[in-house]
Amino acid sequence: MAGKGKIVSGYIAPHPPHLVYGENPPQNIPRSTGGWEVLRWAYDNCRAKIKAQKPDVILIHTPHWMTLVGHHITRVPRLKGLSVDPIFPHLFRYNFDTAIDCEMADAIYDEAIGEGLTARKMTNPNFRLDYGTIVTAHMLNPDWDIPIVSLSANNSPYYFSLGVGIEEMFKLGRATRRAIEKSGRRAVLAASNTLSHFHFDREPDPSLPEDMSKEHVFSHTNYLWDMRVLQLMREGRMDELLKVLPEFIDATSAEVKSGGLFWMLAAMDFPTIPAKVHGYWSVIATGNAVVEWDLSDAAGNGHQEMRAHA
């Protein structure tokens, strides 16, 4: 497959394991009585849309595969195993089994090297996928019938500075876009991030984690911040969004600091189309939104103009 591939859509696709726990899929061992429905319904909308778009691959940038030396990319044909969340093992013990698009992984690696980035291919077949990748992949496509590629979060935003980290992610985004175009793939991108990230330091009721009467966003300040950035996304005000994100990260400890959103926006060439916010709610007090940028021709957004940010 080669030729003019394209990104058909990009999603902010948060990964609290609570969402899988609330859904009770057969792959997950713990059982619940539900919970966090608004976010799960938001994902439901995306699932149907993704199926209709018939992508060849879903690319996921995950903050829970944190790497010290460069950007790592899964590159084994199949990964399978039991993933137990180290933070919420009582909620998430998931049997995963997924195809990896190795050609896509190779292409991203080559383009990343071409950008001057340090990158590595993860070729160990015993590697355990992180729960960020799994939750996002499951919530977007519970059938797991579309190959994925998982990209690690290089910790440059924490090790050096946010500015250095953003520059890295812009380069990785450009590299990803070129790799997709050259590969001929139709790709869905997923930035596996929450928004505001302050959380409870204790579960309100460990015996009933899905008790929604105990669930609320950490603070009104965090809520206002989340709404502010979501509104900018909804209105397609990309310049303002990019300008405000560092302040947002600083004020709310937003998980977007880990890079996925910057990567995805750069890969999509900083779209100024209105994003669709499918839903927002808190999970153990963090702010989570499922947000879609539809770049498909069907949506009339197939020809984003080149912009100057990257």
């Binding site: 933070i87 160990n124 015993n126 590697f127």
Partner: peptide, 23 residues
Amino acid sequence: VLGHLVQTRPNPKGVHVDENWYD
């Protein structure tokens, strides 16, 4: 993150692959 955890599995066993140094 939520306090400390203590391993109480009687016999943990498996294969661990480091997320950075898997090679």
